[in-house]
Computed example of a mutant assay.
Amino acid sequence: MPGITDALSLEKNGIVIAIEVTAGGKKDAFPAGYNEWRKMIGCRVSAPALEGRANKAVIELVARTFERPVAAVSLLSGATSPQKRIRVEGISVNEALALLEKSG
């Protein structure tokens, strides 16, 4: 996925990743493409966008993809929007890119 590094930014204790979520799909997928215009990595979850279920599913999927505990992943912004910023603690940009490539 060319340009995917634009969706990742380094932070003091890890990274922040920009994702674009599609909720209520058939199956979970992360990464699920890359939106070059918005500079966001796609994420599909089967959970509905209802009562925070999709956000919870996104956090669990991101944690699983980056091989981190759920407690190391948090939603920074976009709780009610498809565009979200997620913090992942304890990971470098290079490590994140390698795990995204492996999962994609």
Rank of each mutant, 00 (worst) to 15 (best):
L61I: 05
S77T: 07
E11I: 10
P31G: 14
G42T: 11
A47L: 07
A54S: 15
M1L: 06
R53Y: 13
L8S: 14
P31R: 14
A96V: 08
A98C: 14
V62Y: 07
M1E: 03
R87N: 04
L50A: 08
S46H: 02
A98H: 04
G33K: 14
E20Q: 12
W37A: 01
P2K: 13
V88N: 00
T65F: 05
N35R: 10
R85I: 01
S81W: 05
T22G: 11
V73C: 09
K12Q: 04
R44D: 08
C43G: 01
I17F: 01
E51G: 09
N55T: 03
E51I: 14
I19Q: 13
I86T: 00
G3F: 03
W37G: 13
A49C: 02
T22L: 12
L100I: 08
I19V: 13
S77D: 15
F30G: 05
L76H: 13
N55R: 15
A57F: 09
K27Y: 12
L61W: 12
P48E: 08
K12A: 07
G25M: 02
A54H: 04
A7Y: 08
E20W: 11
A57K: 03
L99V: 14
I15K: 04
E67V: 10
A49H: 02
Y34A: 12
R64V: 13
K26Y: 04
I17G: 08
V58E: 14
A23Y: 06
I17Y: 00
N94Y: 15
A32I: 07
A71H: 10
V45Q: 05
R53E: 08
I19S: 06
S103L: 07
A23N: 04
S103K: 04
S81M: 02
R53S: 08
Q83D: 11
S77P: 05
W37T: 10
S9T: 06
A18Y: 05
A18F: 03
V62L: 10
V88M: 00
P82H: 03
S9H: 15
M40P: 04
N35V: 15
G25W: 00
V88W: 00
A29R: 15
G52L: 08
G25Q: 02
G104M: 10
L76R: 12
A18N: 06
S46E: 11
R64P: 09
S74Q: 10
L97E: 10
G78L: 01
E95S: 14
G24A: 01
A49F: 02
K12N: 08
V88Y: 00
N55Y: 04
I15F: 04
L8N: 06
W37L: 14
D28Q: 13
A32K: 14
T80F: 09
A18C: 10
A23T: 01
A23V: 00
I86F: 00
A71T: 06
L75F: 07
A7S: 14
K102M: 02
V16N: 09
L97Q: 07
C43F: 11
T65S: 11
R44F: 13
F66N: 01
E11W: 09
C43S: 02
